[in-house]
Design a protein around this nucleic acid. Structure first.
Lengths: 153, 153
DNA sequence: CTGCCTGCAAACTCTTTGCACGAAT
DNA sequence: ATTCGTGCAAAGAGTTTGCAGGCAG
């Protein structure tokens, strides 16, 4: 979960798939794993360039699917046009996303019941669940009551 | 729930909002409500043009938000770039989407517990849920076992 | 050396928007 | 008569891709 060992996971994943370990891929990886908040592809490009300024937008977009498929990154689509990403420290946990309409923040919260739900729903259709996500849009109670949002920066 | 009464709902909604009843809006409405499967904006344009060939893409895109806000249409975003729509026969029911990775179909299934889940998850963050969706990606059991998908056309 | 990876820029997809005309109220 | 709604085409945002050269294995 520390950066070195996750990076090692990434190297192994690349080797295993017959993919090459390049300085750009490593820079993108390091940039992503230095983040604690959600980020977009464009932001990741900025971060990665501050490590290795030869990184291009195309390579970021080509590397993102590699990282999401290896479960190193979690992809979050809140239907706003652009996708968000997040280092995946615990790949097996079921997580729900709560998007605050007031401050546009994305909160993630463990939702262990979701797995059962997905299985139940799928089996009624003769399907086996691969992944599931619960996405909630919500408003800030504090903002409603006091007129200001404590979560807002 | 038959087409005439839903259409009446649409007329009333337009009148109520001070929006004009135009032949294009009615054509788009009729086209949408003649469908039993999910459709995209582009498909809706085709359908609507077969009723009134003066309908433009722009008007479809301008009418869709009107219909989704009036709860006549349900919008479904499975993160595939384009959004899907569906006539909303029972606006108050909580529905989960199950997307089959094998045949790309979208199944919808009643998920009455979802509302409680959304509330539970939100309240932990001091938020009030506005809407929630549960989306499951799944694979077809029959395809896995027999090599062909019965749901596929 | 081989061929996967790269940056660049153009292309692509879906959706939104500015404009002047036309139709609903 | 107003003014909202329309079609057209261009613009926009985010992402993908073709190409020629570069670097990992």
């Amino acid at each position: 979960m520390s950066i070195p060992s996750a990076r090692e996971t990434f190297r192994k994943f690349l080797a295993q798939k017959g993919l090459r370990v390049t300085s750009q891929r490593l820079a993108i990886f390091d940039a992503a794993f230095a983040r604690t908040e959600h980020f977009t592809a464009e932001q990741l490009l900025d971060y990665a360039r501050s490590i290795d300024d030869s990184v291009s937008r195309a390579t970021v977009y080509r590397t993102l699917p590699i990282m999401t498929k290896s479960a190193l990154l979690r992809e979050i689509d809140i239907g706003s046009g652009e996708k968000f990403y997040m280092p995946n420290s615990a790949p097996n946990i079921q997580i729900a996303q709560v998007v605050c309409i007031d401050c546009d923040r994305i909160f993630e919260i463990s939702a262990p019941f979701m797995e059962w739900y997905g299985s139940t729903v799928s089996s009624k259709l003769g399907l086996s669940p691969v992944s599931q996500r619960l996405q909630v849009s919500a408003r800030c109670n504090t903002l409603r009551d006091t007129g200001s949002c404590p979560k807002r920066a």
